[in-house]
Design a protein around this nucleic acid. Structure first.
Length: 771
DNA sequence: TTGTGCTGCTTTTTT
DNA sequence: AGCAGCACAA
């Protein structure tokens, strides 16, 4: 076999590729050819006679796994590549749990709960324990439980840990451990695992069953881990144990690009890797092949401000290139227009395609202004991330049928579809079912199986409805045995009447939902076709569910189309573009106001900015505004501290008085675009006075104009304080107060028994019966 | 049981 | 501003 591929590597890269045995750490700076090293290394392993089924390669996204497979397929036989254990942590270990999960009490058909299922389950438990939902916000509890799991703290340990208990008491949430315990119990009962459980249960499996650990230690003779800086403790421990015997472990990562600490990733895993493997060989890939000198050096000057890092200096042989542009704009809208204009200009000057551009931002909410602007200029764009296709309610409802057919204990799936489409089984009935299940320690489906015993709880009509539902699910289960995944989905859509009822809904949302369903059936078809040609057998529902449970929107890439990419910086990791715009680089937004008090979190934000900068090959714009619309209000904004941390030698600053902002003013007054409500907004906001929002507020609360002045009479209707009026619904009442200006005139009316009501006179057709 | 309006929340999110 | 969960009315 040819070793030609080694010629395409620099010295360090080559060393990192050919040294395959023993523990290795590859520190791969941004743009240093990390993917190339990783793929060549695996190919090198195959070429030296290692069986593909003895290689475990873990990535963070399905997309990364797929891309690496594709690249390897160009270097070696595709058949070999397909036999490698390659995928995300979650997908690989979910497979292992389907094989060996019965050792820890899980059937192979267990369900994977996504974040939504998890939150719903937690919400139910909070309700069940009669806790105040205000005191126990679902998101907080979820992240607390998730954190515990990722640190391998089980409910019993959580309960027993004094430090944790103290924290919960300080947070005024002393019952958190009870919620956690019940949550685990219910998931187990439902034969369900959430994302964190996939890792946690793998840990439990290999901790409690040494023979299983040994089995996989011998299967995974070579282990490679990508994006190691973003692993959490749970993942770390799995890797450490699996590689414990042969120690052929290679981790690749860049501490400077660790940006998921907020989800439990531990940057220490990479910083302290040597402690676990003293024999460690370290390779530092410090040569950047991606970006111009100005970008590389500007990025270096930023990241040097972080204390917690592995020392390294990224350099490049690339040309000097353009300086980084830091641009000030008045508002987020002006910022978006500036970016849109620049895209057109740069595209023309450099002969780029739209595909070469990316707009990056800290929060998804920022995308809207950019979308508007790009549409005005007819610039095609694609937003990455946001809501996953499989997370849409209409898709999840269909999937829930599949889930329930596979696993009758899947309570969350059952609750989704028991009244979808509408079968008159409402909240009251479902609550009772769930309570019955809970108090008898069985699943909701078990309760439904015993409707004949429930005469005391439900009336005969409800029992009939439940029986009908039961029979439907049973008949679907029978069908699932004969049909492949696609045929079954079609059958469900027909049999349940979902297809018919959705086709009838001609509202825009309804049409879009129907299209999504069609897209879903297409996706199933595609999957079935692909698998059946590869494996020559019927594609079961189980296969398909496994595929989509861990699929995300990031996976579908229409990247080949001629479009500007828009995404959060988190979503941009690993990508590169010729021109990059980073928007909203302002204090409180980037760095986020939540991280401003904690130096560690500021370091993470700085790494995030580092990631953003290093996405760019040649053109880089960093924009910030003086005012930003936030939660429906204009708020003053200041440039981010990170802007001042960039070495000025590599940066050009552009202020609002420059020509470009002038261009923007002209543009916004251009009659072609007069319709855009930008102008409307601007008229509310004096253009130069950045304190306008405060002024506005003052006017609003000004007693002369506003509500505190009780007016006597509404001029439009003649209704006045003291009159007796009649309301169609509430009957006779006495007018107590008139306030506001037409058309917002409101009256407070006392309807006696019906109580006091505030009515908008515009809508409430009050009749005067007595002045 | 189903439909509708109100209230409260809102960083990032590979799985 | 926009959404989702929830309480209340029809």
């Amino acid at each position: 076999m040819s070793d030609n591929y080694l010629l395409e590597l620099n010295e360090v890269q080559k060393e990192a590729v050919i040294n395959t045995d023993g523990p290795q750490l590859i520190i791969a700076g941004a743009g240093s050819g990390k993917t190339r090293v990783l793929t060549y290394k695996i190919v090198h392993l195959l070429n030296s006679g290692i069986k593909p089924s003895n290689i475990l390669a873990l990535t963070f996204t399905n997309k990364a796994a797929r891309e690496m497979k594709e690249r390897m397929a160009t270097l070696t036989e595709k058949k070999l590549v397909n036999q490698i254990w390659m995928g995300t942590f979650h997908s690989i270990f979910s497979k292992i749990l389907r094989i060996d999960g019965d050792f820890i009490g899980y059937p192979s058909n267990y369900t994977i709960y996504d974040a939504e299922d998890t939150k719903k389950q937690i919400r139910e438990i909070i309700k069940y324990l009669k806790l105040d939902p205000e005191q126990y916000p679902v998101n907080e509890i979820y992240s607390r439980i998730s954190k515990a799991k990722n640190n391998l703290v089980l409910p019993s340990a959580y309960q027993a840990n004094i430090e944790i208990q103290k924290q919960d008491i300080n947070l005024k949430r002393p019952e958190t451990s009870k919620i956690y315990a019940l949550y685990q119990q219910r998931c187990k009962k439902a034969s369900a695992m959430d994302f964190d459980d996939l890792l946690l249960n793998t840990n439990i499996l290999i901790r409690d069953f040494p023979e299983i650990l040994e089995k996989y230690q011998n299967i995974f003779k070579y282990i490679l881990v990508d994006e190691y800086q973003d692993t959490n403790y749970s993942q770390y421990l799995i890797i450490k144990k699996l590689s414990g015997l042969l120690q052929n472990i290679c981790v690749v990562g860049d501490d400077s690009q660790s940006i998921y600490a907020f989800r439990g990733a531990k940057i220490e895993n990479i910083l302290n890797f040597r402690n676990d493997f003293p024999e460690l060989k370290v390779y530092k890939l410090e040569k950047n092949y991606r970006s111009t000198k100005n970008i590389v050096y500007a990025a270096n000057s930023l990241i040097e401000k972080n204390k917690n890092r592995i020392p390294k200096t990224i350099f490049t042989d690339n040309k000097i290139g353009e300086k980084v542009k830091v641009v000030e704009q008045l508002t987020d809208r002006a910022e978006a227009y500036y970016v849109a204009k620049k895209i057109i200009k740069i595209k023309k000057e450099n002969n780029f395609t739209f595909y070469d551009f990316a707009i990056l931002y800290r929060t998804n909410a920022q995308s809207r202004a950019f979308e508007d602007a790009l549409r005005r200029f007819s610039i095609p764009y694609k937003i990455f991330g946001s809501i996953s296709f499989y997370q849409r309610a209409e898709i999840k409802n269909i999937v829930a049928y599949l889930r329930l057919v596979i696993n009758k204990n899947d309570d969350q799936a059952l609750q989704r579809i028991i009244n979808f489409p509408k079968r008159s089984i409402g909240g009251t009935t479902v609550d009772k079912l769930v309570a019955l299940a809970s108090s008898n320690n069985i699943t909701t489906w078990d309760v439904i199986l015993q409707t004949h015993k429930l005469g005391a709880v439900f009336n005969s009509r409800t029992i009939g409805l439940l029986n009908k539902f039961k029979n439907l699910i049973i008949s679907l289960t029978e069908k699932a045995k004969e049909l492949n995944a696609k045929e079954f989905v079609d059958f469900v859509l027909e049999k349940t009447g979902i297809k018919r009822s959705m086709a009838e809904d001609r509202s825009p949302e309804g049409i879009s939902k129907f299209e999504n369903i069609q897209e879903f059936t297409n996706a199933v078809q595609e999957y079935v076709d692909k698998k059946e040609t590869e494996e020559q057998e019927k594609v079961s529902l189980e296969n398909f569910l496994e595929e989509i449970a861990l699929a995300t929107d990031q996976d579908s890439d229409n990247a080949d189309t001629e479009k500007v990419s828009m995404m959060t910086i988190h979503a941009s990791k690993g990508l590169e573009f010729k021109a990059v715009f980073i928007g909203g680089v302002e204090e409180g937004l980037f760095p986020s106001f939540r991280s401003i008090t904690d130096p560690k979190e500021i370091e993470e934000e700085r790494r995030l900015f580092y990631v953003a900068i290093t996405r760019s090959e040649a053109e880089l714009f960093v924009t910030h505004t003086k005012q930003r619309m936030k939660w429906g209000r204009f708020q003053d904004a200041n440039p981010s501290r990170f802007i001042f941390e960039l070495d000025e030698n590599y940066v050009d600053f552009e202020y609002i008085n420059d020509d470009t902002s002038q261009d923007f003013e002209n543009f916004s007054n251009n009659s072609t675009f007069a319709k855009i409500n930008f102008i409307e907004n601007e008229s509310k906001q004096p253009k130069i006075d950045i304190h306008a929002p405060k002024k506005l507020k003052k006017i609003k609360s000004n007693p002369v104009l506003d509500t505190s002045e009780s007016r006597e009479k509404d001029d439009k209707t003649g209704i006045a304080v003291g009159m007796t009026v009649v309301h169609a619904k509430f009957g006779k009442g006495k007018v107590l107060k008139i306030e506001g200006v037409f058309p917002q005139t409101k009256a407070t009316v006392d309807f006696g028994d019906a109580g006091q009501k505030n009515l908008l006179l515009k809508f409430a057709q009050l009749k005067i019966i007595e002045s």
